[in-house]
Amino acid sequence: MMTVIGLTGGIASGKTTVANYLSEHGFAVIDADIAARKAVEKGSNGLQQISEVFPGTLNEDGTLNRKLLGSIIFNDKEKREILNQIVHPIVRNIMDEEKDAALKQGKAVIMDIPLLYENHLEHTVDEIWVVYVPYYIQKSRLMERNNLSESEADARINSQMPMEDKRKKADVVIDNSDDLCALYQQLDSLIKKYTSI
């Protein structure tokens, strides 16, 4: 039986870099963000539900106005919950189909799920890898990457479970507080372990 690994981290922790590297080395990476985009594509059932619950969040061309929806939910926990109740079941179905297809091909599967702990999805994977960075690095990378103010960066980071909590719960911690070379060394040793099974 091939392993299903849940890959998570925090915003700007470098999880995408890790996922891309693992994908290049033969793992099937199933990305929750990509599935989430599919779940709210133009004309989809998910998008229709969102537009009914959050009026005014559609662009003129019938696509989702992500920036507007983001500004509504980022500082409102209840509205964020409502959105999650619409999107998550659809995302899970998309990811499950992709996971089953990859397992049939005999690949080790990475379920790339940013909010794995927040959404209590631990039971859907065999083990969990957390891409970890300390708060101050996470914050400075996020401010630089998204051109955010300090308070905007804090709000986004604080909408997720603290990195320290994720780190404590992880089966494997991938420390990304150094450079890419150090990151890839850690990944190479993990890849060896999983491709020799």
Rank of each mutant, 00 (worst) to 15 (best):
M111Y: 06
R37Y: 04
V40P: 10
C181V: 15
Q185P: 02
C181P: 01
E81L: 13
N119C: 10
D154N: 13
K139N: 10
P89Q: 00
L47I: 08
R37C: 01
E41I: 08
N158T: 05
A102V: 11
D171A: 10
G46W: 07
R145I: 09
V133Y: 00
S151R: 14
R156P: 05
H123T: 07
E144A: 12
V172E: 03
N158L: 08
Q186H: 11
K107H: 05
Y135D: 13
Q85P: 00
N75C: 06
F27K: 10
S149L: 02
N84K: 08
D188H: 09
A36S: 12
Y136L: 12
F74E: 01
G46S: 03
E152L: 04
A102S: 13
E41Q: 13
N59C: 14
A170K: 04
Y132R: 10
N146P: 06
L68S: 00
I94D: 07
I113S: 02
M2L: 13
N93E: 15
F74L: 11
S71V: 02
A28V: 07
L64T: 08
L121G: 03
I157Y: 01
K166R: 13
E81I: 14
N93R: 13
G106S: 06
L103M: 11
R145Q: 12
I157W: 04
L148G: 08
G9I: 06
K139R: 15
S51R: 09
I82D: 09
N75H: 11
Q138E: 07
M111F: 02
P162M: 06
M95V: 04
V125P: 07
T17C: 11
A182C: 13
I50H: 07
G56W: 01
S44D: 07
F54N: 08
S149C: 08
A35I: 03
D175E: 12
R156Y: 02
K99R: 14
N176E: 05
L121V: 01
T16P: 10
I157T: 10
D188G: 03
V172Q: 10
D61A: 02
K104G: 05
E122T: 09
P162R: 02
K77F: 10
Q105S: 12
P114T: 00
I73T: 00
Q185F: 12
Q48Y: 14
S177H: 15
N84G: 15
I110L: 05
R80L: 01
K38T: 08
N20V: 04
D179V: 14
G9V: 09
A182W: 10
P162G: 01
A19S: 15
T16I: 05
T57R: 00
A182T: 12
N59R: 15
Y184Q: 15
K15T: 06
R37T: 02
R66F: 03
L69K: 02
S189R: 14
N84P: 08
H88K: 00
P114S: 08
S151C: 09
N20D: 15
Q48V: 06
N65I: 06
Y21Q: 04
T16V: 12
N84W: 02
L64R: 04
L22Y: 08
R80G: 00
T63K: 09
D61R: 07
M1E: 14
L22S: 04
Y194M: 11
I174S: 03
I30A: 11
M111D: 07
L121W: 12
I86Y: 00
L142M: 12
K193F: 11
L116K: 01
